[in-house]
Simulated assay, not measured.
Amino acid sequence: MRYNRPQPMNAALTARSFADLKPLRRALQEAAQQRAERERLRREAERRARAERHLFADAVGPVQPLKRGHERRWSTPEPPEPLPVQRALDEERVLRESLSDEFDVTTLLDVDDQLSFRRPGIGLDVTRKLRGGHWSIQRQLDLHGLRTDEAREALGEFIRLAHRTGLRCVRVVHGKGLGSPGRTPVLKGRVQRWLVQKKEVLAFVQARPLDGGAGALVVLLQPGRRRPGG
């Protein structure tokens, strides 16, 4: 039996085949390097995450849990009180508009059988209707027993709030002075001066006997904001 002997490989062909494998080897090496780099980045990311999770413990050191029965209960602090901005503004305005006891009111008062006051431009019919009960009395301020400074402050606040809430007719009781030294009314003249200085006041008259007579004044206020529901 005859056997065919293998033919020797052409040297040029072999060299060309090895040359064709070089790009493949290079691609495999680059792929291996990329896998190694990704693995390195993954391990680095895990290390950083682990370090961040243990950052507080590493900084504080070993701790021991509190014994039962001594647990600390944290409570939310109460919110601070709101700043009374509007009240502060009102008080500042009151100080600016402080009522003077030295104000000369004599030339502004109509003194007939009963004392009255009306601002310029307000007709006599207004005080006549006010004296006759044309406007019903909606609120009253009684100044009995108050010192002069207390009465001044109370009157200023009363007139301001009455006007703000839309009231038109109020009564101010200053007393007849029967209990004062010399039986002289202390507040009567001062209340007249204070009311004349209040821009909210259009007019006032001495009250009718059934409304307090010489111990009270009926006051007509400028139209203000309407009361809720009015």
Rank of each mutant, 00 (worst) to 15 (best):
residue 109 L to M: 12
residue 141 L to N: 00
residue 101 D to C: 06
residue 147 R to C: 04
residue 100 S to D: 13
residue 120 P to L: 15
residue 127 T to I: 09
residue 100 S to H: 03
residue 119 R to P: 10
residue 151 A to Q: 06
residue 141 L to P: 01
residue 126 V to G: 05
residue 133 G to W: 07
residue 128 R to V: 02
residue 124 L to G: 11
residue 110 D to P: 04
residue 134 H to R: 14
residue 94 V to R: 15
residue 121 G to F: 08
residue 109 L to G: 07
residue 107 T to E: 12
residue 105 V to M: 14
residue 132 G to M: 08
residue 151 A to Y: 05
residue 102 E to D: 03
residue 98 S to C: 03
residue 121 G to N: 07
residue 154 A to N: 09
residue 124 L to Q: 14
residue 157 E to R: 11
residue 107 T to Y: 04
residue 124 L to I: 02
residue 119 R to A: 09
residue 125 D to E: 07
residue 127 T to Q: 04
residue 132 G to R: 09
residue 140 Q to N: 06
residue 114 Q to V: 10
residue 117 F to P: 01
residue 130 L to K: 14
residue 136 S to T: 15
residue 137 I to V: 11
residue 146 L to F: 00
residue 138 Q to P: 04
residue 138 Q to R: 14
residue 136 S to W: 13
residue 138 Q to K: 12
residue 125 D to N: 03
residue 123 G to D: 06
residue 102 E to I: 02
residue 145 G to T: 15
residue 119 R to S: 10
residue 139 R to K: 05
residue 121 G to Y: 07
residue 138 Q to E: 13
residue 107 T to Q: 07
residue 110 D to G: 09
residue 122 I to N: 14
residue 145 G to C: 09
residue 136 S to D: 10
residue 147 R to Q: 10
residue 113 D to H: 15
residue 109 L to V: 15
residue 149 D to M: 09
residue 104 D to C: 04
residue 149 D to W: 13
residue 123 G to L: 07
residue 110 D to Q: 13
residue 130 L to M: 14
residue 106 T to I: 06
residue 130 L to S: 15
residue 98 S to F: 04
residue 135 W to A: 11
residue 158 F to K: 14
residue 108 L to Q: 14
residue 110 D to H: 12
residue 149 D to N: 14
residue 158 F to R: 15
residue 105 V to G: 13
residue 119 R to T: 09
residue 156 G to Y: 05
residue 146 L to K: 01
residue 140 Q to Y: 01
residue 112 D to L: 13
residue 155 L to V: 01
residue 130 L to R: 15
residue 111 V to R: 12
residue 117 F to H: 01
residue 105 V to E: 14
residue 120 P to V: 13
residue 149 D to P: 08
residue 132 G to A: 10
residue 147 R to D: 02
residue 124 L to M: 07
residue 157 E to K: 01
residue 141 L to R: 01
residue 106 T to L: 06
residue 115 L to T: 05
